[in-house]
Amino acid sequence: MNKALTSLNTFFLILLFLSLIFSMFSIPKLNIDETQSIKVNFYELIQEDDILFDSSILNTTIKKETKKASVNDKKAEPSEAEILSKFKINKSDIKNEISKIKLSKEREDILRVSAIIQASISSIWIKPNSLSESLIAKVSINLAPSGEILNFDLIEPSSNNSFNESILTAMNKMTFLEEVSFLDRKLFEENFRNFNLVFKSSGEIE
């Protein structure tokens, strides 16, 4: 009896382990360029999609189609099952596709706005000359939905004073980041309400 229990225990443990591994692989994957790395909260997305599917037109169209099939030909019952299974596969596919589209749309927006912010700050940041050391400084920014810079703070200054000064000067020059005002509000709150700028000097002569 004990033996049976322990073996059951180990069996469950293995099952748990396998399911963990399986769940890891079953998470939808994003194709992202080498230069861009993105991580997104997948749980949230999947849940949202489920809600979307429950009330979605897709589901109703599936039902309608199956009804039509049954009305037209009674002999076609096995084929109905086939169609259903087909739809099942399609459903999960579509789910993935939609989440992908949603993701890529969001990602695109974030990338686009970030690139614009990056370019506009690059265009006014006068980097101190010939810094031979590599330096990093981090600035945190608070934005209003209109794009106005409410507040900024050099949260992680570099060891080089003139590098820090140049960043503060550039940040003072910047008053508006207009681009964010065109963003979806939710996206703004999630990403651009509060974000960080990381100023880097590789120490290379350019």
Partner: peptide
């Protein structure tokens, strides 16, 4: 969100 600024003006 973190945006890297590598290039100056």
């Amino acid at each position: 969100l973190e945006i890297e600024i590598l290039k100056g003006s």
